[in-house]
Amino acid sequence: MHILFVHRSGSGQFAALIASLVAQGDEVTLITERPAPEQPGLRQLAYTVGEASTQHPALAATDYHLRTGEAVAELMTSLAASDPPDVVIGHTGWGGLLFARDALPDAALLGYCEYYYRSTGSDLDFGAAAPIPPAERQRIRMRNAAQLLALDTLDAAYAPTQWQRQQYPAAYRQRIAVCHDGIDTTLCRPDPEARFTLPDGRELAPGAPVVTFVARDLDPYRGYPQFMRAAALLAERHPELIFVAVGGDGPGYGRPREDGSLWREAMLAETGLADRVVHIPWLSYEAMVRLFQVSAAHVYLTVPFVLSWSLLEAMACGCLIVGSDTPPMREVVRDGVNGLLTPFDAPYQLAQRIEEALRHAPRMVPLRRAARETIRAGYERERCIDRQLGWIRRLAR
């Protein structure tokens, strides 16, 4: 069987699924804009997206999606003539599947539905202090244009969480199943012997008073400013605490600051925590797991948006989660059962909950165990991949 994947950034969310298909001896091809490292058994076809052809701000994303769809369709057409795939699996959000049905009319199409943008009741207007300008609402609505056209041609689709599925229009929602990408619970597990070495040489072990924060970038979407303000409150009362924040300095899912400074720089200037918070721009996956394994309290905050793998990996490691009471967090973390929840934009309450977690560590052990069991029961990688493989086999038939 020949399976074709389409993803803008290498294998992305499909990495484990691709590895399973390769291991089973299936032919696997990946069409991508940013090729992943070479992997035995995986053929990669790279495309390039030309220059933008429109200057209308509301059409910027649509223009990129159109050019992506054209580039991907050209590669698909070549495959159709030489080695047609049986099943195509692609991310619906970036235009890669826009013309898949035209280029590969005989292939089954399975879409990965990560996020449907909404102008109200979602990330755009969450906590907004002022009305959202009409032009911004129009821009965000237009971001879905190519995705909707792709959805109309799919044979099946799935989303990683129930909340992400619910963001899609009702007309398509009934065709979207729910299955996460999966978490490796054999690697992500509690380890009382774990050790994590800070850049200054200090070694941390389980039981150390360390509060952790991990995000791709240190941005407001993931609550970095709120974390830093809570850390400032705690630092005054608890000089023994060690704060570790992992994340890059890019704009992340939001936009750059209007003053041109980085969020890390701005929050260090505001809080004066340069000597108390250890900032690490990037960690290997193995090092990140070790950090989770030594964490006394792990802070995960998010506006209503895509749920991060890192939260689930931290839970699988038995972290005590202190998170935001926002969707889709509530789908995974239940306050007082497998973690602690607090309002998103309330640094004082966040500091209180972190303090509670540290002060009553023995009482938090059942929550840590429940967090891991939540991941094992609903997000364990092998089960998720088995389900996805079942879809592929049925679609191929």
Rank of each mutant, 00 (worst) to 15 (best):
E193W: 06
R216G: 14
D63E: 07
E240G: 08
L97A: 10
Q147D: 01
R118S: 11
A60G: 09
L204S: 05
Y348A: 15
H360Q: 13
I392E: 09
Q388D: 04
L218C: 05
L98R: 14
A230K: 05
G111C: 10
V244G: 05
A316N: 06
D63H: 00
S310E: 06
H2P: 11
G182H: 11
Y115T: 07
E258R: 11
E356V: 12
F99K: 12
L154Y: 08
A194D: 06
E356L: 15
R137L: 11
D125K: 00
R118K: 13
L389F: 09
P343M: 10
G223H: 00
A73W: 10
L218N: 07
P133M: 04
A232D: 04
M315N: 12
L312H: 05
T29F: 00
G247F: 02
Q147C: 02
I280W: 01
P366S: 13
F305G: 01
L17V: 11
V322D: 09
H180Q: 12
A274E: 15
R372T: 03
E270A: 15
Q138M: 14
P133D: 04
Y117R: 08
A58M: 06
R165H: 00
A274W: 10
A145C: 08
W391S: 01
G93T: 15
R290M: 01
Y64Q: 13
R237C: 00
M267S: 04
A19Q: 15
L30H: 10
I183Q: 07
W282Y: 15
A15P: 00
E74M: 08
R34M: 09
G12V: 02
A156I: 03
D83Q: 11
L154S: 03
A346M: 10
A80K: 04
A171C: 09
A146E: 03
I354Q: 07
L233M: 13
L151S: 05
T62C: 09
H298D: 14
V289D: 00
P343Q: 07
Q138S: 13
G223T: 02
A357F: 04
A357K: 08
D386R: 15
W282I: 06
D155C: 00
P347H: 12
A36R: 04
M315E: 06
G272D: 11
Q55A: 13
T29R: 01
G339V: 03
R101K: 13
M364Y: 02
I375S: 04
E236I: 12
E356T: 15
L149A: 14
D86H: 05
D125C: 04
G25L: 01
I183S: 07
L66W: 09
I3K: 01
R175M: 13
E27P: 00
A266V: 08
W309L: 07
G10F: 09
R137C: 13
P169C: 03
A171I: 07
